[in-house]
Design a binder for these strands. Sequence first.
DNA 1: ACGATGATGAAC
DNA 2: TTCATCATCGTA
Length: 175
Amino acid sequence: MREVLSQRFFDRPTLRVTRDILGKYLVRRIGKRELAREMRDVEAYIGFKDRASHASRGRTARNQVMFGKPGVWYVYFTYGMHWMLNIVTERKGFPAAILIRGVGGIPGPGRVTKFFKIDRRFNGQPANRRTGLWIEDRGVKVLPRTIRRSARIGVEYAGPWKLKLWRFHLSPQTT
DNA sequence: ACGATGATGAAC
DNA sequence: TTCATCATCGTA
């Protein structure tokens, strides 16, 4: 079984999408080659008020993709050297996205983009085969008990929002 | 524990 | 136009 996730998958409440995306595969086509890794560590950034989210300070040139259609990549540059990969969720007009923080064998959002050769070219592009970067269901069953929830990483500044348990990840030896 | 390294957004 | 900050990582 191998099915490309459609826009419909992402047009749902973000926490549900975030949980469901674990065990799915991030796939990248580079020429004739395909790289694919299981998603194991993801974080939700939800709505206008979430102070950890870029969207909390209103719509800007950088974050406008978060306010757009679901199933679109939001890629931004940070710390002068790292690209961060997110997939937009929920309806147009409501800013939300999921940060891909780690995939199989590759922990860390900066390492994920480096491994998959992802940069600003994907920002605003839909996740599908045509754009060369998409997400597949490969039939992996993720048992609810193998999913861990925690506070998000690197958002100490976010006040009460730093306490939200919006990081979902799989422990190293599960599936 | 800290420096790298540059875009971003808010202040001035 | 300046400046602090930043959804991080590698080295120590």
